[in-house]
Write a protein that binds this DNA or RNA. Structure first.
Lengths: 147, 147
DNA sequence: CTACGTGCAAAAAGTTTGCAATCGC
DNA sequence: GCGATTGCAAACTTTTTGCACGTAG
């Protein structure tokens, strides 16, 4: 049985406080505002635990370190232990080239079997969009990475 | 000026011989069949050189180590030094869950601005398909990772 | 001959793990 | 008190770099 430690609370707060898609070091930074002595190892261990419990989800984008977000959607709390990209429902993501932030998208281009050659069996797909998020697009060339 | 070393030839042969999308250790394995003493450092350095020269392209998939493939298409030889996902033409990829091999796709689902929220400026997109490649789909549950 | 390329070892970045001390329950 | 959890350090994976030696041109 898992215990309600200050560290566990601090890690989850990073998500509930920001509502953002965060990397492990970003989670650490947020968690340290609550529990200054928390270590990166504990962040990774709590993230693994929260993943297994289905409270958060792993977000992997091409060429980027792993990020994590609060699990949302119809079966957010379902403990699908495999964690693969083959879940019944899925999300896609937008990666801002200026501020580096990642945003979940709520739309899906639909099935993509046609993109694969004959004989290939498509079981899932992932889409990543790149460009400027609304704040950065509005700010023009002046914006910089917000913490 | 770059020199025509046996190692450089061996690294490029890995691509021309297999025509596949390869990870650095896979390139090393192929290259060692030609130049047994070649090191992984040299593979990475030659890959960097071949990338800069536009002879090969980097393929990054979510949660996967970087792979490389022979540059192909209309401006394969154009030395676009930025290497970002914003090139004029691009490819998408299929990742086989059974054999782990990556295949380039020749189709594109088209523009995806509609997936992003209002105010977001979409500049490029990446699509990754997952499933079974033709050989693995045909082989059923019997196939295993081919070298 | 000389500078670029190579192999090795060490470093860097991201993530995981072993272990003794700590703390929830 | 017991055992899960923590912090630290070390290991691990992927990729990069420093350095002395080797080799292409």
């Amino acid at each position: 049985m898992q215990r309600l430690t200050r560290q566990r609370n601090a890690v989850f707060s990073a998500f509930s406080d920001t509502g953002r898609v965060l990397t492990a070091p970003q989670i650490l930074a947020h968690a340290r505002e609550i529990v200054p002595e928390i270590s990166l190892s504990t962040v990774y261990r709590q993230v693994a635990q929260l993943l297994a419990d289905g409270h958060i989800a792993k977000v992997e984008l091409p060429g980027e370190p792993a990020r994590y977000e609060v699990a949302c959607g119809p079966d957010a709390h379902a403990h699908s232990l495999h964690g693969g990209p083959d879940a019944a429902h899925h999300h896609h993501y937008f990666h801002c080239s200026k501020c580096g932030q990642v945003f979940m998208l709520h739309a899906c281009p639909g099935p993509m079997e046609d993109l694969a050659p004959k004989g290939f069996r498509v079981m899932s797909h992932e889409v990543t969009l790149h460009g400027l998020c609304a704040p950065c697009a509005k700010a023009g060339a002046g914006a910089r990475k917000p913490g």
